[in-house]
Simulated assay, not measured.
Amino acid sequence: MARRSTVQHDPRIAGDPELSAYSDFPDEPDSGQETSRERSASRGRWSGGGGRWLVWVGRAVLWALIIVIVVNGVRAPFERFTRQNTPAGAAPVSADGFPTTQGTSFAIQFAAVYLNFDGARPQERAGRLAPYLPEGAESQFGWDGLGRMSAGAVQPYGVEVVDADNAVITLTYQSSDRRQLLSVPVYYDRAAEKFVVAGRPGILPAPAPANLPAKAAPDRDGAAERELRTPLEDFFKAYAAGDTASLQRYADAGVTLEGFDGAFTFVELKDLLVPLPAGATREVTATVVWGVPSGATPAPDATPADPGQVGGKLEQAYLLTMVKQGDKWFVKDIRGAHRSAG
């Protein structure tokens, strides 16, 4: 059985000559199911209603997401590139913009000249001070040309930033048996990228040493100390001589040790502290006495360990990590010791 096309009954066709052409199409067979034209017409009627705005909103959200991904993808490599091309030697600046690292270096060099003078050679000091002083400053910068002073071990202590162009840089130094401070006002010419001492420095007393609180001594493993003494004496002899082959006999598997190569000689193992509890791995504190070279020209047949070449003695403390394998102990690590007890 055939049925007439539903298009012919659509009231819209009657008033539209273009749509009325569809009425000439032959009827589709009656399959008992909705035809493709009917499905298309029904979908078109639905999407033309309230659902189309959801499509446009979805498209807008999708495009916004794509734009964010693209922008981030372009920006990330650019930021990495600019960071990699930032000069590695760029000087750190304070929160106020004063270049503290460069300013401190300038102040240290100035202090090394300023704190050393000799009344027998005043012009020498004046010439060395000139690169640090402002134009028109007194050549000796406050010294009357008499007396003598020497100082060394000049190190940074602190920086007080006044503003982006001015700071007071404090240094610590050693003069004779005194540790003292020197505060130096420094001006930074930002346009010329230059520094100058902006006023008279001030010498101040350095803080006294801190009070070290007493520390209880640990319980000692006497048996392990006796067992380790001879192997460690032999180890430190090889360590002083820099005997690579001997050192490797005392080193744990995979550990490479280097010694002093004769710069010191082994005198004695003064103290050995092995704390409890016991175990196959122990942290051992050793106090070693080294022989310091005398500085004299050695005899042609002298060896680094020749006692006649020792000019003095120096005690040093070391922390060793020892590992026991079978009946033998091996050195896994050697470094400076922690604070002592007492």
Rank of each mutant, 00 (worst) to 15 (best):
Ala2Lys: 10
Val7His: 07
Arg12Tyr: 10
Gln33Trp: 03
Thr35Lys: 10
Ser40Gly: 10
Gly44Val: 09
Trp46Gly: 07
Ser47Phe: 15
Val55His: 09
Trp56Tyr: 13
Trp56Arg: 11
Ala60Arg: 02
Trp63Ala: 09
Ala64Arg: 11
Ala64Gln: 07
Pro77Ala: 03
Phe78Ile: 09
Asn85Arg: 11
Asp96Val: 14
Thr101Pro: 04
Ile108Lys: 00
Phe110Asp: 00
Phe117Cys: 06
Phe117Trp: 14
Leu129Met: 05
Pro134His: 11
Gly136Gln: 11
Ser139Ile: 01
Phe141Gly: 05
Phe141Asp: 00
Asp144Val: 13
Leu146Tyr: 02
Gly147Leu: 09
Ala151Gly: 03
Tyr157Val: 07
Ala167Tyr: 08
Thr170Gln: 07
Leu171Phe: 06
Ser183Asp: 09
Val184Pro: 02
Pro185Trp: 15
Val186Gln: 03
Ala191Val: 14
Arg200Met: 11
Ile203Glu: 08
Leu204Gly: 02
Arg229Leu: 14
Thr230Tyr: 02
Phe236Tyr: 15
Lys237Ile: 04
Ala240Arg: 08
Asp243Leu: 13
Leu247Trp: 02
Tyr250Phe: 15
Asp252Ser: 08
Val255Asp: 01
Thr256Glu: 11
Phe260Met: 03
Asp261Gly: 05
Thr265Lys: 10
Thr285Val: 15
Thr287Gly: 01
Val289Glu: 08
Pro293Trp: 15
Pro293Phe: 15
Gly295Asn: 10
Pro298Ser: 13
Gln316Ser: 12
Leu319Tyr: 07
Thr321Trp: 14
Thr321Asn: 06
Asp327Ile: 00
Ser340Trp: 04
Ala341Trp: 02
